[in-house]
Every structure is written in structure tokens, then in C-alpha cells.
Design a protein around this nucleic acid. Sequence first.
DNA 1: CTGAAAGCGCTTACAG
DNA 2: CTGAAAGCGCTTACAG
Lengths: 336, 336
Amino acid sequence: MSSSNASRRPTMEDVAEVAGVSRGTVSRVLNGGHYVSPDALTAVQRAIRKTGYVVNQHARSLVTQRSNSVAFILSDPQDRLFEDPNFNILLKGCTQALAERDITLLLTIAGTQEDRRRVGRWVTAGHVDGVLLVSEHAGSPLTDELRSRGLPIVAAGRPIGHEREISYVAADDRDGARQMVNYLRSRGRRRIGIITGPTDTPGGVDRLAGYRDVIDEPDPGLITHGDYTQASGERAMADLLDRAPDLDAVFVCSDLMALGAISTLHRAGKRIPQDVAVGGFDDSKVAVSADPPLTTIRQDFTRVSTEMVRLLLDSIGTNTRSAVILPTELVIRESA
Amino acid sequence: MSSSNASRRPTMEDVAEVAGVSRGTVSRVLNGGHYVSPDALTAVQRAIRKTGYVVNQHARSLVTQRSNSVAFILSDPQDRLFEDPNFNILLKGCTQALAERDITLLLTIAGTQEDRRRVGRWVTAGHVDGVLLVSEHAGSPLTDELRSRGLPIVAAGRPIGHEREISYVAADDRDGARQMVNYLRSRGRRRIGIITGPTDTPGGVDRLAGYRDVIDEPDPGLITHGDYTQASGERAMADLLDRAPDLDAVFVCSDLMALGAISTLHRAGKRIPQDVAVGGFDDSKVAVSADPPLTTIRQDFTRVSTEMVRLLLDSIGTNTRSAVILPTELVIRESA
DNA sequence: CTGAAAGCGCTTACAG
DNA sequence: CTGAAAGCGCTTACAG
């Protein structure tokens, strides 16, 4: 509150003087209060309040070699991710989980090659203790660089091809896909198409694998790919209708693409779900407001972010690698 | 690249040794290369490359008293903002505008009272050189605290009641509203309702003012309020239909609320725009996919973020206050 | 339990 | 143009 010199920020020295102790004692109070007498403790606490002292993080970091902050790196050529509602939940979840531990999240977007260089430099400038990596595609060019710097990393989603090297938290994509396709079959559907994500993402590879787990020898004409955008869902659905006009269900590997698929089906005069049942993936916000509301697979992104933070903080201390797979669940609405 | 001791990060001392100069010279090279001989310059540059040296930001900040980072503070009781597409564009725009200047954005969410205390402490811990403040409501409790710390602040949107004190960047809400209402009148509409934002936000106050600018003595039955959510748009529209069943147009002060209004109108059997013309505000993503596509007022959030960053960086050096009002424009689609 | 002192890795007058 | 030195504000053995 008050301070003798209004223009200068109080330092530990000031606190020590007011409290009548040494700088070292003030520091001990700040760092847990061990080896401090009750008298000294109260004196210091009072002095802190009186001077309005706040620790200088840079000075502290310089000696502890810890910054108490982690980077949230969005690394993807198209930064479409930023418009993805799932991404939002992830970012928010991580920010809050970290805030609870008084750790700051630094947000970074590394879309272009140059961005990535800058981020690489920056991350190694001691700015952060670890990295939360969100990337749509496997083998993001940044991954190797960060790894070579020995920085703890936790990825969102299975980092295809790097599973042994970096920690990650993912939803059980394969099982989710299995649940959906099993459900569609249980409703009597026999010609079940699939629109997967890009083939270098878990949403492409693993969800297709789940589909194949249920359907023995799938007709190749029933399989197609999108890029998670609504527009790609429209196109893929048109393609599917072309190649398999008799399909009676489609599993679309993201809610957003499912929206696109639905509009194509509407235009083609198909009733949902009577003529074609539609299943999505994500249970994002759009699932509820879709017409008809979307039967989909829920993945809990808030949980994903909590786990990512936990893993990262663990690995900052211990340098261990680990992976967490979270369960997915079927949410039944009206589209299937 | 290579380094004699793999486990230790190279310091300026290491670079100096390799280059055969003093630490001071290395520092001068790093800080612009003034007062450095060509020979020394190349030697140092080579040594930097050889050692893989990266500056330690904490050490630098400790002496310069500058952190080269700014906080992006999302301060609002309901952190609904986070789900707002406009907010997304703002965050992305700021991140990128800052990145170009090698300045880091620290993302902070201060929803609860406790969050705000934490953020206050944190901001004053020397973490940041300035603050980008995004808050839905005027007089965010954080504003005063930050101001009392003498930290440069730039707000997004007019900070009602604090216009003389803190810098801000805003779209011309009032003029945007005028444009829309004028347009509706030019289309022959005479009973024009309005659904404003909360009355303590510019989207509540200023857009209503613009409406009043055009409509001399508005029927109070034509004026109602929402809270920017889609659900509130539904409710407000129902209310409006109740009180003024004969209205032939409605200006809804956000696209999201307009979506809600549209669904209420549909349920009431009204044709859009034949029976009731609907105008929105924002020109956000949903405007295009609305049914029918929304006639709305565009505000350019990318531009807002660029200007916010510019103002903040200016004011960090000079401690000046200023405000920027950006133009809005009418985008005509099918809803009106 | 406590203080004095070294040291974290930089920048910046100062003297030359 | 350059080096030696002080100092930014902390933490942490070390000795007591």
C-alpha cells in the first residue's frame, strides 16, 4: 500500500529493513516459511503488506532457472485450429489448470516456417519450463527441435510416429469409433459410410481403425476423407452419395464435418435419420444446435487439458514420458 | 549447435570467450551492434552460431526492467467471452501483431474475484510491460488496480466511464447502429424494434444511441435487451413480439443474438425478411451460415487488435493515453 | 533459526 | 571501439 518512494517498486531489501531482518529471512518466508521463527514470520508478513512487496519474477527465475510458466504452442500451417471450438476449450482448460498452480500460460501461434523459428528461439530463451503442443498433424516440424532442446513437452492427441518420444493425452479415438459404428449397426444400418479426418491425424487413422474393427471387409466406396472443415464434410458427403447411393448411415469423424454432411444430405432430399443416419464425433457445441441434433461421440476436452497440465508439471520435475488415454462416450440424439 | 558442455546452456561469457572479446562487446552486438568494429561483429556472430547461444530473457529483464511481453487479460465474471468468435479473432490478431515485434503474449483469464487478485499480483511481478484488457462490462474491477500500478493499458471497446483514463480501441458502434437503422427505414420498414446488449456495455449503450439518432421518439415497446447469447436473443425476440406484434423489422445488436431472434421468428411463423426484417451486428462467422444469411454491421476485429497492439507499444514508451475509433460498415445479405 | 556472501546472466555508464 | 566493473533482485549453501 504505502511506500516511502512512490516511484520505485519495493524490493526484498526494503521488506527486510522494515521487518528488521535480513534479506535471507525474507526469502525463506517467501519460499515456504521453513526455518523461520514465528516472530520473524509475522514481522516479515507485516512488512510485506506494508510495503506492498511483490516478488520480481525475473530475479527469481535467474537464480532458480525456472520461469514458472509454460508455453501453449499452436503449431499448424493452417491455423484453422484457432476457430475450432474444441481448441478453445483446450486453451481455456489449460489456462485455468495452470493458474491454480500459479503458473502462467504463454500463448504462441506458430503457423509459418518463420513463426516456428521464432518460437524455437523464444522457447529456449528460458521463457518457459515446458510446452503444451497442439498440432493438427503428426510430426509437426517443431517437435524435433523442442525435443532436441530437452524441453518437457506434452501433446494434445496422439503424436503419430512420436508416441515413444513425447508425452501426450488423447481421447480413445479408436474405441469411440467402434462405439459409434456398433450403435449404427444395432439400429439396423448395414451400408455404413465413413468420412474420416486427414490421414495423418489420429482423427483420420484411429477412427478409421475403429470403423474397420466393427466392419469386416468394408466396401472402399464407403470410405472417404475430409479435413475437419464443414465445407469438406459437404464435399465428402456428396462424393459418398455418388459412389454409394444406397448407404443408410454415415459416421462423420467430426461434428463440424457432420454439419456439412447433413446439408448435403438435405439437398439430396434424404431424410435424417430415416433415410441416412448420421453420427458425429466430438460432442462440440454445434452438435446440439444441428438439425436434427447430432448423435455423436463425446470427448472431454476439459479433462484432456487437466491431464495435459498434470503430465507436463510431472515431467518438468522428473523428465519422465507418459501417455494418457481418456475414455469416449456415445451421446444419442436424433440424427441416428 | 555444438557445445563443450552439453548439459549447460551457453552464456554470454562463453560467446565472449569463443569470439575472443569481452562480455560487453557481445552485449553490444546483441543490442544493435552500435560501437562495434566490423571484425568484432563477425567474430561475435560466428561465436553465437557456434555456441548456439540464446539470450537469457530473465537476466536481461532484470537489468532492463522490461519483460518484452504483455498480458492479454480476459476479465469478466462469466467467461462466456471465450466462446465468442469475435474474441477469438481478437486474441489471434493480438498474438500475431505482437509476435512480429518479438513480444510475447501472456494469456490470462480473470473470471473470479480470486483470479483477479492473482492476476493483479502477477502483473505487478514484473511479468509484463503492459496490458491488453478485454472485458465485456464497463468498470471491470481490475481496471482500477492496474491503473494504480501505473501499468500501460489498452482496452478493447469503449471502457464506459473510464474514457479519459485508459486507452482503447473500439468500432464505431453508434454509427454502425445508425447505418443499420437507416438502411431498414430505406427498405420501407416503419416499426423497427431493437435488441441491445447489456446496458453497461458499448454494445448496449452506443448502439441504442445510434438507433435513437435515427428514430425520433421510439416506442418503448420496441426496445429490449439481451446479454449477447443466442438464448437471450430468443427470449428478447419473444418479448418484443409480445409487446409489438406489428413490428416489421428488428435490429439485433449481435449476430449471435440475431440467430436466436430468427429462430423465435420462425417459430412464430414470421417470414424473414418479408414479414420481419432482421439486422445483426458484428459480421461474425455465423452471419453467413444463418438462415437466411444475415444483413449485419461489420466490425473488423483483426484491425482492432492491430490497433490495440500499436497503442499499447506506443504508450509503454511514452505513457500517453489515446483512443481509436474504427469505422463500421453495412453488409447486406438476405435477412433484411 | 539467522545473517553475510556468492552467484544467477545480463546491460550500461565509465574510463580509456 | 573496447574492457573492467557495478548492479539489477533474488536464492541458497555456509557458518554460526
